[in-house]
Design a protein around this nucleic acid. Structure first.
Lengths: 146, 146
DNA sequence: TTTGATTAGTTGTATAAACAACTATATGCC
DNA sequence: GGCATATAGTTGTTTATACAACTAATCAAA
């Protein structure tokens, strides 16, 4: 029994990700009250495009840890909102390259500020070294399971 | 800037809960390959009913951190699967008390074993004291935001 | 005791995720 | 070159979540 740390009450909240759900909800509310007409999931796609645009849907799948149908539909909705554009690759006609629009470029600064603000609220009172440990553990969990 | 610990790459995975998503997916796969015809969300409702049955839908909302429509529909689906039963309260006719069926009582042991197994896989190689810190941080995050 | 507010639960609508099945294009091997 | 296979993306279906609007029952206060 190498790491059997889980009494039942703790097991539940670890699996359901209560903390990350709470963070996402808080951020969504900030988006709404700031008039950003954007879901967290859409934001998470833009997030990666702000780092690098012109990547394929498959690369977005890998970056956002989603499957292909999920990305197809997120890109569908982002295109309807005029926030991204699909551009067929010239080298490989199977591939769509996803580009930002002028409109979504404008959203970056405000939405990222709200995200940072949310995390600061979430981690208020938590000392930096504990945050480090927590991030490290969550990364190991992800690596162990992916 | 009290706790501004987040460089951009880290911000993303904290918000999206990559780790808990990975855990939930792994557990879902274990359910599927074990022939447990059950979603993680349905399991999370049963989980609380195994601790105490005969509670109201509102109490399930609080326990599972979901809103009322979500619980209505989860209970709908659990009822279709013959895993729970709605029983109108005699004291307060607004309230449904939710009870387990014989069928769902049988699922407890196997599904809980799979959940523990999943967490052990997730946390393999993580020392116990780091797990403790991580759980503590996640609890504080939840309390800060709820 | 009646009326106004609160609480419990349901329904409608939009967005999203997982899985399977599908089309179209590209690649690799003979 | 031609065929098998792999890859990129789409579509269909089921389940789940969030929010708003709704019904029914209860409570509280004038």
């Amino acid at each position: 029994m190498p790491n059997n740390q889980f009494k039942k009450g703790e097991l539940y909240s670890f699996i359901t990700g209560k903390a990350s759900t709470a963070i996402a909800r808080r951020l969504q509310k900030k988006f709404n009250t700031s008039g950003l007409n954007l879901t967290i999931e859409q934001w998470s796609v833009l997030y990666h495009l702000w780092k690098q645009e012109g990547i394929s849907q498959q690369e977005l799948c890998n970056a956002t840890f989603r499957d292909k149908p999920s990305i197809t539909r997120l890109v569908d909705n982002l295109e309807k909102l005029n926030l991204v554009k699909r551009v067929p690759s010239e080298n490989d006609r199977r591939i769509n390259l996803i580009y930002l629009t002028r409109q979504s470029q404008k959203l970056q600064e405000e939405s990222m500020a709200l995200a940072e603000q949310t995390l600061n609220e979430a981690l208020e009172t938590v000392p930096a070294e504990k945050i480090e440990v927590c991030k490290e553990v969550l990364q190991v969990v992800y690596d162990n399971l992916k």
